[in-house]
Every structure is written in structure tokens, then in C-alpha cells.
Design a protein around this nucleic acid. Structure first.
Lengths: 231, 231
DNA sequence: CGGTACGTTGAGTCATATCAACCATAGTGG
DNA sequence: CCACTATGGTTGATATGACTCAACGTACCG
């Protein structure tokens, strides 16, 4: 029964994520208590305000991370894909989670308990540095995002989002974006009302920049979208 | 000439900042190459796009960190006060600075070269953990900020900013905020036009929530501002 | 005294939010 | 099988917050 876990943990995937500087002994150390977990669409991995007991490295699927504001509206600040790490912030700061993570596309994750993470950070400098770099990169992305929100129109941000989704999650054989979000989710990424997203999407469609059927989106004219963003 | 540096480095201030887990030997190690630097209002500490060779721990004064967007408008995402650390993100990720830091109030900083920082992260797990926690806290603040920007009106954000400035930088004997920002700077924190800030400030003034004379601001009715923010 | 940077006010415009109605779809239970 | 309900998507009408532009005031500085 543990063979699956062992196989996964010792396979090459670790080199693609923040665990890449762990040696065989350290992987064994992790293996003692890590778990491979599976979640389906809309399941909650961890929740804002609640204590977390470990962090998660994604192996497959897509997860959204969002904060719920005072009036109950959500803001999605991250869409995570395989080999990204979730929830280490709260684990390291020993505070309750400051956001909720739920599943967009069915996923498998590797759960790492708090004590193991702490121990590895303290004993493996390279690993600590890697984690620091991940945190710093997220911080930088976050700052860029704020600057954009402060300065760009909804129209620009939506165009940019579509390009980002294509770049990060790719397209299938019909050129459709692999990631499918509801109108409300799109609105919660851009930071606007769902009606606005709907209007802008059909605007883009009528100008032949994109094609939409339900949640399936095809980008027809990348250049045009880039121009809207203003690059 | 080094006596000042040595005195500062070995005094108790380090316990108030991220360096608190360094032992005497490590402080000596830092001392070999750190420098105490002084900057005056409007001087640039480091600049967006430029390579950085080290990071800075603030000892006195106030610094603003901002990003310059595509259209040349600035967005101020952080106002740093003593014992906070600046620029470690770029140092650790080995990338050019992604923002500019300039001086609001004359300040002294302790400059720590890149190689020393790297070495300490790799060899002192507690220190790495502390730095990670700082990064995580900033990340969390940043996410909160984004969520607010996505969901709150300029009016709310300005009210919140005034409260934050009072809380973080305090007031003088006349109840005036210790930090004095230009209208444009206020606008660049809130993410709006200077005219909007001016209008809202005089609105707040006419409703007796605050008093303003030039850049000196007094908060008269904290409760009212909190109510505007919506707590 | 003119210059430069900063602050203020007014008028007009536009993007976006809000509210309300309506449609499509799918699942549910009688 | 049909009504029933819930959920998500769409469209229109309306309101308004915030931006832009432009003019003007103010203060400090050489």
C-alpha cells in the first residue's frame, strides 16, 4: 500500500518542485509521514481562518486560492498547477490559513506535515533558500498584480487573464483553454462583477478575438489581446 | 571609525529585527563587510530594473517602496519603518530589483552584502526560518491588499490608509501623523488620482473626521473612519 | 521677480457596478 | 413524465464613482 507513495516520492517529480534539494535520506524522512491525497472538483483543501497542520505539493490538477472579503465576495489570487506548493505560509508562520484553497480540476497532492517542513528548513540550507525563493517570487508576482489592479482597466485585466490562462495551463487539441472557469470565477480573478466579465467576453467574441461556447474558450487573436493589455 | 558600526551591530537592536537569531560570531562575520549608510529625503536606495548587491535593514527613518507601471505611474506598496528589511527579495532570487526604494524621512540603514546573506541563510536554519516568516508575512499582507483593492472603494481605502498611518507611524505632540506624504504619494498608495485624494480629504475634513493643514494630518474621529472602512 | 512644484476646484465623460428580469440547463421528487 | 427548483448565464436600464483635462491658487526658492 505504501508502494505507490514510495514510488512517487522517489521518482523524478521532486526535481521539478521546491523539494529538489532534498537528498535520499531526507525524502525517506518525509516519506514516513507524508500522504498522497486526492480531491475532486469543489472540494476544500484548507480553509481561511482554520488552523493548518501541513502544506501540500501539487502532483496533478488545478487549485484556486482565494480570500473571502468582508462582504462575502471572494478574490482569487492564485491558480496553482502541478509542482507548485500550497499552504506553506501558514505552516511556517504558525498562524491560521489566510485563504481558502479549493479544487478546480480533480487533483492529487502530497501532504507534508508541519513538523517535517520545519525540521527540513532548519537543517537543510539549500532547501530553505529554495523555499525562500518561492516565497519571494510569489511576493513579486503579488506586487505586480497590485500595481496592475491599481492602474489597469477591467478590460485590460481580463485580456491579460485570458493570455495568462493560455500560457500557464495550455490548450487542448481544439485550441480550447485547458482550464475552465465559471463566469463568476473569472470575475473573482479579475476583481469585478460577473456581469462585467460576461459583457467584455461577448465584446471580445464579437470582435473575433476569442470564441466561447459555455466555459470553453478559444483565443483566436493573441496579438489583439496583447494590444489591449498594452504591451 | 569602525567603532560606531561595531557598537550598533552589537547593541540590542538586532533583537527587534530579522537578525535576532544570529550569534556573536555571525554578527562579527556580518560586521566585516556591512556598512552603516545614511540617506536624505528623496534619495534612492535602490532602483527598479537595476541589479542589487545587498539588502538593507532600516535603523531609522521612513522609506517608500514602489513599482513604476507601464504608463509611468507609480504604485507605492510599502512604507517601511525601522527594523524592517528591504531588498532581500532580489538578493535571494538573484534578479534585478522589481521596485524602487526612496526615502520619505531621512534614514540610516545597515547594508548587508549579498554573499553574507546567502551564507547565513544556508548555515543558520533559525535565521532562514525567520526570513521565511518575514517573506510570508509580507506575502499575506500583499494578498490582503489585493483583495481590498478588488473590492473596496477609493473612499474606504483612503480612510483605511489614514488609520494605518496613524497606527504604524504614530502621532506627534499635536496629534499630527508623524509621517507626511504629498497628495500624490497618498494617491499612489491608494491607487488613484491625486485629485481624487484631494477631494476625499476635504470631504473628510468638512465632516470633521480629520483636520488638515498642508501635509499635516490629524485624525479627529477614528470611529467614523473605521465605520467608513466598514469594520 | 519669475519659476517650479504642489495643491485645489470645476466640468465633463466614461467605465463599471448595481438592480432586475429573463433564459437555459440539469437535477429532483412526486 | 412533468412540474419544481436551483444554478449559472445573459441582457438591458440606470446610476455613479472615479478619471481626465484644464484653469487657477499658493508657496517656496534662487
Amino acid at each position: 500500500m505504501n508502494s505507490e507513495k514510495a514510488r512517487i516520492l522517489h521518482s523524478s517529480w521532486k526535481n521539478q518542485c521546491v523539494l529538489r534539494h532534498l537528498n535520499a535520506d531526507e525524502i525517506d524522512y518525509l516519506e514516513e509521514t507524508t500522504e498522497i491525497r486526492r480531491y475532486k472538483r469543489n472540494e476544500v483543501i484548507f480553509m481561511q481562518e482554520k488552523r493548518v497542520s501541513g502544506c501540500y505539493v501539487m502532483l496533478s490538477g488545478i487549485v484556486k486560492q482565494f480570500k473571502t472579503g468582508v462582504e462575502g465576495r471572494d478574490y482569487i489570487f492564485r491558480l496553482a498547477k502541478p509542482f507548485e506548493i500550497l499552504g506553506f505560509r501558514s505552516v511556517l508562520s504558525e498562524e491560521p490559513a489566510c485563504n481558502t484553497s479549493t479544487v478546480i480540476d480533480d487533483c492529487t497532492v502530497c501532504y507534508i506535515p508541519k513538523d517535517r517542513l520545519h525540521h527540513l528548513v532548519k537543517t537543510n540550507g539549500e532547501f530553505a533558500l529554495d523555499l525562500l525563493q518561492v516565497a519571494c517570487r510569489e511576493l513579486e508576482e503579488s506586487h505586480s498584480l497590485i500595481t496592475e489592479m491599481a492602474q489597469k482597466s477591467i478590460r485590460k485585466r481580463l485580456a491579460e487573464l485570458l493570455l495568462m490562462l493560455q500560457y500557464k495551463f495550455g490548450v487542448n487539441e481544439n485550441q480550447q483553454l485547458n482550464i475552465m472557469l465559471s463566469r463568476e470565477e473569472l470575475a473573482n480573478v479579475v476583481g469585478t462583477a460577473t456581469e462585467s466579465v460576461i459583457r467584455l467576453l461577448s465584446e471580445f467574441k464579437s470582435e473575433r478575438y476569442i470564441d466561447i461556447s459555455g466555459r470553453k474558450i478559444v483565443i483566436l487573436n493573441e496579438k489583439a489581446l496583447e494590444k489591449i493589455v498594452g504591451l
